[in-house]
Design a protein around this nucleic acid. Structure first.
Length: 325
DNA sequence: CGGATTTGACCGGCGC
DNA sequence: GCGCCGGTCAAATCCG
């Protein structure tokens, strides 16, 4: 029951790294635009969306017992990492392929885990959705991103039902599988914690929402996302689940909706184990950001324009990754 | 009572 | 051909 009041998150600041894996398996992206296209179309051209967002003050409401999140339960090594909750809104990095993903974090967190799974997924492509043997199901675009958060399951405005959990190889943390509860919507989401950095949650979205998403779990949609959310919404690879209608209405994100992937939006942990440290370690965040280099990454740029803070962060990550690649 | 979560088993693909 | 591994299904259980 994510239904807890988690809707309203404290100034949860998660560091998000988008590792977009949009692979179109069948070589084609069915309906999705090319990544570049997307970038070009919206990112650069409409960076404004970020600005458009009214700066909301994140309401700080901690669901007392929001802890219904099993996943969240996982032991969080509260080592420094955990403690590092960066108030950093987020850093996003997106990549378009597994490789990219890997590249993104060369040795740091194991996005690797994610990567790994990606491969696996690739194979499973066939089964995903399709139960037909001969036919391979077309793979839906996937978008993975990392978030620094104590909670595994972040709220993104959609309602998800957990349908499985598996232990992840080389990782003490399990991977949870979620599916959009909307009957017509086949979007799936995988959530796992980085074994290397427990504070990092790797979320992979797959598919596109076919409905408006306003499914705000608990009608919390008013408590909308703090600015970071928006930020977080980088250039999604494509219309992830972007309900056209979703547009800014709910979120006030003008363009966003158009291609906004549900994922990035989620910066509201469904469960809040504990109040995050608002004063995160700047150090940690810093470290992360430290690498930021000026890079001509489009995504970064567009993101950047948004709010100084977040943008700043995000781009950095992205850039960083780009550089490393 | 209804819906969501949990957990183990099963399925299918890939690598060796 | 076998084993490994990821992903999904489905029954049982829990919670609101």
């Amino acid at each position: 029951m994510e239904t807890s009041a988690a809707a309203i998150q404290p100034p949860f600041s998660a560091q998000i790294q988008l590792t977009g894996d949009f692979f179109d398996a069948d070589g084609g992206d069915k309906d999705s635009l090319g990544f570049l296209e997307l970038l070009g179309l919206r990112d650069l051209h409409q960076p404004s969306f970020l600005f458009e967002l009214p700066p909301r003050t994140p309401a700080v409401e901690l669901p007392p017992a929001a802890i219904s999140d099993p996943a969240a339960a996982p032991p969080q090594p509260e080592s420094s990492d955990a403690a590092n909750f960066p108030a950093t809104p987020s850093s996003i990095s997106s990549s378009s392929t597994e490789a990219a993903a890997t590249a993104i974090k060369p040795g740091t967190d194991s996005a690797a885990t994610g990567d790994e799974s990606e491969e696996a997924k690739a194979r499973k492509t066939c089964k995903e959705g399709g139960k037909k043997k001969g036919q391979k199901r077309q793979r839906e675009p996937r978008f993975a991103f990392k978030t620094r958060s104590e909670v595994d399951h972040l709220e993104d405005g959609y309602r998800w039902r957990k349908y499985g959990q598996k232990a992840v190889k080389n990782s003490p943390y399990p991977r949870s599988y979620y599916r959009c509860t909307s009957a017509t919507c086949g979007v799936k989401k995988r959530v796992e914690r980085s074994s290397e950095d427990p504070a990092v949650v790797v979320t992979t979205y797959e598919g596109q929402h076919t409905h408006p998403s306003p499914v705000m779990p608990r009608g919390a949609h008013q408590s909308l996302p703090p600015t970071h959310l928006v930020l977080a919404q980088p250039p999604p690879p494509l219309g992830f689940g972007l309900p056209p209608s979703l547009h800014s209405k709910d979120l006030h994100l003008p363009l966003f909706g158009s291609y906004l992937p549900p994922p990035p939006m989620e910066f509201r942990p469904m469960a809040t184990p504990r109040p995050l440290m608002l004063a995160p370690d700047a150090a940690a965040a810093d470290a992360v950001l430290a690498d930021r280099r000026p890079c001509a990454n489009q995504r970064a740029q567009y993101v950047i324009r948004d709010h100084g803070l977040l943008q700043d962060l995000i781009p950095s990550e992205i850039r960083k990754k780009e550089e490393e690649m």
